[in-house]
Amino acid sequence: MPEIGAVPPRCVLVLDPAAPRWLIANAAAVLGASAGAAGAAALGPELTDASGARWPAIAEIVVPVLAASPAELAALRAAAPDAGVTALAFPDLAQASPTYADFAAAVARTATADIGVHAVALLGSGNAVRRLTRHLPALTDPVPVP
């Protein structure tokens, strides 16, 4: 993992746009929590609106959300270390495991090539993350099914 100092690393979330909505939402939530725990984001201050209602703090960073196929996601994960970028992955084994212990056991018995990747969060310098992701489109709404 890159050194995380006073300046938070850039964080980009890359998801499989063909995945079911519930899986996209779950992957985004898990990777967002993981990126925050890894130091990618500091919380801003609590806010008060014009009516006096309080708003708890949220992360101060902007997180672009991009789209990539499962093969592209696996390639991003594999290329990240050489680019000096940390790739936090949400693999199919995590989604299928009821506990972290079950997930760990599944990873231990599965070859890298056999682990499908639903999403990745990329953490690193802005330039390094951009070099890996500049060719990817933004995640948009799926085409409606008639």
Rank of each mutant, 00 (worst) to 15 (best):
T86E: 08
V62Y: 11
V7S: 14
R134T: 11
P137H: 10
A28D: 09
S51C: 08
A113V: 06
I24M: 12
A59Y: 09
A111I: 05
V143D: 14
V143S: 12
S97L: 12
A27F: 10
H135A: 14
L132D: 01
L123R: 10
G124D: 00
E72P: 04
D16A: 08
G52R: 00
T133D: 08
A83E: 03
V85C: 00
I24V: 13
A111C: 05
N127G: 10
D102Y: 05
P20W: 07
V62S: 15
A18G: 14
A68N: 02
P142N: 06
G116Y: 04
Q95F: 12
R134F: 14
A68Y: 02
A111S: 10
V14E: 10
A33F: 09
L76M: 06
A94D: 13
A6M: 09
A78K: 08
I115D: 13
A83K: 01
A33E: 13
L31R: 12
A59T: 12
L15S: 09
A38V: 01
N127I: 07
I4Q: 06
L88Q: 13
D114S: 14
V107F: 08
V129N: 05
A89G: 07
I115N: 13
A113F: 01
L73P: 07
L122C: 11
G39A: 10
A50G: 08
F103W: 15
P142K: 08
V120D: 01
T110C: 06
T140A: 13
L47D: 05
R131Y: 05
P56F: 02
A78H: 13
G124E: 00
G39T: 11
A42F: 09
A121D: 05
L15N: 11
D82P: 00
A37R: 07
Q95M: 04
G116C: 06
A25V: 11
A113C: 07
A119L: 04
P137D: 14
A28I: 06
V107S: 06
A121E: 01
D141N: 05
L122Y: 12
V62G: 08
A35V: 02
V65E: 13
A37T: 12
A50N: 01
T140I: 03
P146T: 11
A27S: 15
E60D: 11
L73C: 09
A25Q: 13
A138N: 02
A40E: 07
P2R: 04
A18F: 03
V117C: 13
T48Q: 12
V62P: 05
A119G: 15
A94S: 08
L31E: 12
I61N: 10
H135R: 10
A37P: 07
A18W: 05
S125K: 01
D114P: 10
E3D: 14
E72F: 06
T140P: 01
I24D: 04
T133Q: 10
S34Q: 14
V120A: 02
G39C: 11
M1S: 15
V12C: 09
V117Q: 08
A28Q: 07
R54H: 05
V120F: 04
E46D: 15
A89I: 04
